[in-house]
Simulated assay, not measured.
Amino acid sequence: MPEAHLRVTDEVGETWDDPSEEQIQRIYAGLNLRCRFLILERLDVPDDGQNYLQIRLNDDLTMVVEYREGGPGSHYRAEVPLSAERGGDEIVVPVLLGWASRREAWRGALPWARWDVERERPWEEHRE
């Protein structure tokens, strides 16, 4: 069996290797206040840092999207001020699918800001 290139993991630890676009959309659609985040991780990149995109639901169902492509200097985040029902999914789904398939247009979909670990720790309560 060939090695996976992409892995998706949700908050409860369920994983999917090399999911289709339809599977990614279903996994995203399953996010709720009990399962708030998902991580898309590239497994086929050099081991010189982390390469992922993750989404987290806030209490008001707006979202934070974060990506990293290598070391700490390549770590960014963006706010999606709309819940999925109010149009947030129209922003987030193309970002997820574009990132997963390496289409560059996803970068222009959100106003990315460098993630500052000293100032922001949106997922700290979920990490061990």
Rank of each mutant, 00 (worst) to 15 (best):
V80E: 06
R34H: 07
W115Q: 12
T62E: 04
E22C: 09
N32F: 00
V92Y: 00
V12P: 00
P122Q: 02
V93Y: 00
G13T: 11
E120C: 07
D18T: 06
V80M: 08
G49C: 10
P72N: 09
P81L: 09
Y67T: 08
R77D: 07
D59H: 12
I27G: 03
A84H: 04
S101Q: 06
A29S: 15
T15D: 06
P72L: 11
V93N: 04
R68P: 00
R56H: 07
R42W: 01
R7C: 09
P46H: 02
Q25L: 12
G30D: 05
G88L: 13
D47E: 07
W99Q: 02
E118N: 08
W16N: 04
M63S: 15
R7E: 14
L6Q: 07
A29Q: 12
R34Y: 00
A29P: 05
L6T: 06
W99K: 07
P81A: 15
E128L: 08
E90H: 08
E124S: 14
R114T: 11
D116Q: 08
L82M: 14
R34D: 09
C35F: 01
P46L: 05
W123G: 02
P19Q: 05
D89N: 15
D116P: 00
L97S: 05
R56W: 01
Q23C: 02
E66R: 13
W106C: 05
E22I: 04
L82H: 07
D10H: 10
I91C: 02
A78Y: 10
W123R: 10
D60I: 07
L53I: 04
E66W: 01
H5A: 09
D10L: 14
P81H: 14
Y28N: 06
F37L: 12
I91N: 00
E69I: 01
P72Y: 06
V117F: 11
D44T: 06
N51A: 10
L82Q: 09
W16H: 13
M63G: 04
G98I: 00
S83N: 04
R114E: 13
G70C: 03
Y76E: 12
G108C: 06
E14Q: 15
E124V: 10
E11V: 03
R102I: 00
W16I: 07
R102Y: 07
E85T: 09
L82S: 13
N51S: 14
A4T: 03
G87H: 05
L53V: 03
R121C: 10
R36C: 04
R34N: 08
L82Y: 11
S83D: 11
D44M: 05
E90D: 14
L53C: 08
V12K: 12
E120A: 14
D47W: 04
V8T: 11
I55R: 01
L96Q: 04
P81T: 13
Y76M: 13
G30I: 01
E120G: 08
H75Q: 11
L97F: 07
R119F: 04
V95R: 00
D116H: 08
E3N: 08
L40A: 05
V93R: 11
V117D: 13
R86T: 12
Q23N: 01
R68I: 06
R119H: 09
R77L: 14
R107F: 05
Q54P: 05
P122D: 03
E14T: 14
